[in-house]
């Protein structure tokens, strides 16, 4: 009951924090798509490069987020951005590379070689093959990678409150430091709801972006 009245009384604050949270993840994953998809496509040209890139990306994911934030403080302090929004976005951008690069790479390499050969034999340039055949066929799998990145990083963004990035993590960190279970629980529930909502919305988007001929 206490929690419900807390939520009712602080509705606009919570919404504001949620908006910050969404903004951090959206910017970071957006940038991750802009980098990860081209990287995923580029590494299809060489198995050895692909293995190396995917190895590095999976190492990055194993670094705990707190440690990653800590590592960035001295680096980004040189431009006066040691804490706050920027390191949060960079961390999420890095974490997002693995699902996005890996899914893009897998999806493109899994395109039926017969289709690639048909496209080539009909006189498509490599870019035309990519845009007209390979990417449209890869879209559902790439989108699944984006979904994974978003859901995973909504949690990471909550921890970024400790370095002053804002977002729903603020409720959690305050709840802990002020031993205020109302804020703690509200923050935790809000983060989970946000993750579930994002997953659902992105699944809808994934289905819309899937070419009609590939739908079951």
């Amino acid at each position: 009951m206490e929690i419900l009245s807390f939520i009712a009384n602080n509705w606009s604050v919570i919404l504001g924090l949620a908006a910050e949270h969404i903004w951090i993840v959206a910017v970071a994953v957006g940038l991750a798509i802009l980098t990860g998809v081209p990287i995923g496509i580029a590494i299809t040209q060489s198995k050895r490069v692909a293995d190396a890139v995917l190895y590095v990306a999976s190492i990055i994911v194993t670094i705990p987020s707190i440690a990653l934030f800590g590592l960035m403080i001295p680096l980004l302090s040189t431009i006066g951005q040691g804490i706050g929004w920027l390191p949060a976005v960079i961390a999420i951008l890095l974490y997002s590379q693995l699902p996005i690069v890996r899914n893009t790479y897998t999806a493109i390499t899994n395109v039926d070689p017969a289709l690639r050969e048909a496209a080539k034999g009909m006189g498509m340039t490599p870019l035309q093959r990519l845009l007209q055949v390979e990417i449209p066929i890869a879209v559902p799998v790439i989108m699944a990678g984006v979904r994974t990145a978003v859901v995973m990083n909504i949690g990471v963004a909550a921890i970024a409150a400790y370095i002053g990035a804002g977002g729903l993590g603020v409720l959690i960190s305050r709840g802990i430091s002020q031993t205020d279970p109302r804020q703690l629980v509200t923050g935790a529930i809000a983060v989970s709801l946000l993750a579930m909502a994002a997953d659902w919305a992105l699944l809808k988007l994934q289905k819309r972006l899937t070419p009609a001929g590939l739908k079951r």
């Binding site: 039926d112 017969a114 289709l115 050969e117 048909a118 496209a119 080539k120 034999g121 009909m122 006189g123 498509m124 340039t125 007209q132 055949v133 449209p136 066929i137 070419p211 001929g213 590939l214």
Partner: peptide
């Protein structure tokens, strides 16, 4: 590329593009 556009090519696996 020009050469291939002037030669009709039918592959054994048919190879219709499923997204089109």
């Amino acid at each position: 590329i020009e050469l291939r556009r002037n030669i009709g090519y039918v592959i054994q696996q048919i190879g219709l593009f499923p997204n089109m």
